[in-house]
Each structure stands twice: as structure tokens, then as C-alpha cells.
């Protein structure tokens, strides 16, 4: 790992000015992706700004039909939260499948969403639930937030403070994990709202995406049968040593049906 200067921010204003004064500063939350990337010298920031001590980034609350989760909330805390389990059980389930036990004790929702790994779990839920990403500067809808592989609408120095998830009628998540990394080879989150069904697909392509054919079919008839035989364009997926694009496309169809089945069992 290359050398860097380490700062612990007492509040968000301090974090912003530490970042502004750094050559190439990065925010560190739980560090479960960033520390690993720095060890491999894939990432070499000049400064790290640790936001873990900022009290306003902690906690989960339910308000006006939404679950609002502070950016520093760990995956383990979301998985175990009675509020999340009651309001959006699929979201708690999803958090409980990220990485492994130790990663979940340390990794945070803000870090995962900001990193936007194309095979990460949270982006599928953020997109399918039409969540709002709240930052130090503004609120960004999920449809505008994820802009490509590891790319988001975040500006330099902008920090995620919370993610607000609208509570659906029912929702489900299913993923086929890579057996070694537990990242999704294909993961599908479905959310059924009064206004229609939204679907978030992760693991397959250049970043999380929706699919109109699945959404329309499920809005008409929320059942696994309604999407029997549906798949995503193979061209929109990527193949690598873990799975071919064709195999991933097949998995998306299978996971979508499982996610709907999970949602139906939920309520």
C-alpha cells in the first residue's frame, strides 16, 4: 500500500474541507472495498477522510412511507434491524447476503452505493425501490444516480449521508452468488408498488439496470408465470472467467422468478 495522510472528520463540514484541501482525497467508510483496493495498489489516494465518527450518518428510521438508512449503517445492522425487517423484509434479506459475516460487520450502505460495483447487491435494491440518495449537497433519485460501471452522479467532495427507500407493497431479492466472492453473478430485486413494478438487475453488465419487459409483465400479473421465458438482451451483459453473457442472461430470468416468489411469500 502506498503512503497517504489519514484524517478523522468530526462532522460533514470538516470532511468537506479536508477533501477540498487534498490532492486526491477519498472518503473511507467501512473500507471493505477501499482498503483491499489500496493493498493491491489499484487505488492510491493522497488522503483518506474517515467519516465513521460522524454521528449524523448513523441510524435507521421509518418516516412517511420510507425507510431512511444512514450512510454509515453496516450491512449487519440493516440485516438485523427490526424496522427494516417489518417495513421492507427483502432489503434486510439482501443486506444479510452481502459478502460474509465479517464484511457485513464493517461494510456500509453508503460505501456500497457510492462504489457502485457492477456486481454489488445494494444498487439493485436502490434502483428497484426507486430510492433517493441523500448527499451533503442534494437528493438524487436512483434513476439518475447510477451512471455506469463504478460511476455515479456524485460530484468530487459530495458525500452520501443517507438512502431513503420507499416502502413497497411487497418486494423480493434473489441472487446467484459467485461461490468464492459472494458477489452476484446475477441478482434481481423486484418491488411491487401501487404505481407498478420496478426491477433492478445487478451482476450482469456494466452496472445495475432496469428492464421494461419484466416490469410491464409483472405490473400486469405479479407472478413467476408472467415472466416465464423472459430474458434480458445478452448484448447488455458481460462475460468473463466466472460466467458467459448467455449464462448470466439465463440466470437473470431464473433469479427474477425466484425474487417474485420470495415477494409473494413475504405478504
Amino acid at each position: 500500500m502506498y503512503e497517504f495522510a489519514f484524517h478523522r472528520a468530526a462532522d460533514l463540514d470538516a470532511a468537506a474541507s479536508l477533501l477540498a484541501n487534498a490532492d486526491d482525497g477519498r472518503v473511507i467508510a467501512g473500507g471493505q472495498t477501499l482498503v483491499a483496493a489500496m493493498k493491491l495498489r489499484l487505488s492510491a489516494p493522497s488522503d483518506l477522510v474517515d467519516i465513521s465518527g460522524i454521528a449524523s450518518l448513523a441510524g435507521i428510521r421509518v418516516e412517511r412511507g420510507a425507510v431512511v438508512i444512514g450512510a454509515m449503517t453496516t450491512h449487519a445492522a440493516v440485516a438485523a434491524s427490526a424496522d427494516v425487517i417489518r417495513a421492507i423484509p427483502a432489503l434486510a434479506d439482501l443486506a444479510g447476503t452481502i459478502g460474509d459475516r465479517m464484511v457485513r460487520n464493517r461494510g456500509t450502505i453508503g460505501g456500497s452505493v457510492a462504489n457502485n460495483d457492477p456486481a454489488a447487491d445494494y444498487p439493485a435494491a436502490v434502483l428497484a425501490l426507486g430510492a433517493t440518495v441523500i448527499t451533503t449537497q442534494r437528493s438524487i433519485t436512483a434513476d439518475d444516480f447510477f451512471t455506469g460501471m463504478y460511476e455515479t452522479a456524485l460530484e468530487p467532495g459530495e458525500i452520501i449521508t443517507a438512502v431513503s427507500f420507499p416502502i413497497p407493497r411487497r418486494a423480493g431479492y434473489a441472487k446467484f452468488p459467485n461461490p468464492a466472492s459472494r458477489y452476484a453473478l446475477a441478482g434481481v430485486f423486484v418491488a411491487d408498488f401501487e404505481t407498478g413494478v420496478r426491477i433492478g438487475i445487478t451482476g450482469g453488465g456494466g452496472g445495475v439496470f432496469r428492464d421494461a419487459a419484466f416490469e410491464e409483465a409483472l405490473t400486469r400479473n405479479f407472478s413467476p408465470a408472467a415472466i416465464e421465458g423472459l430474458s434480458v438482451y445478452v448484448e447488455s451483459l458481460s462475460g468473463d472467467l466466472h460466467a458467459s453473457a448467455e449464462y448470466r442472461a439465463h440466470l437473470v430470468g431464473v433469479m427474477a422468478k425466484r425474487a417474485v416468489t420470495a415477494a409473494l411469500a413475504d405478504r
Binding site: R8, I28, G31, V35, A36, L48, R101, M102
Partner: peptide, 29 residues
Amino acid sequence: CDTAQCGACTVLLDGHAVKSCNVLAVQAA
């Protein structure tokens, strides 16, 4: 390992199991 996969380095940090090879010492201040 060098990749935060094996768990041989697991310790409790404020009571929670974490991989100490994937945490900076200064993060544990």
C-alpha cells in the same frame, strides 16, 4: 491471504468480528 478472503486474521472490533487485514490500524483508534 492478501485479499481479505480467508478469515485467519479475524478479531473482534468493538465486539464485532472483522478481518483485521482489511482494516487500517488508524481506523480502530
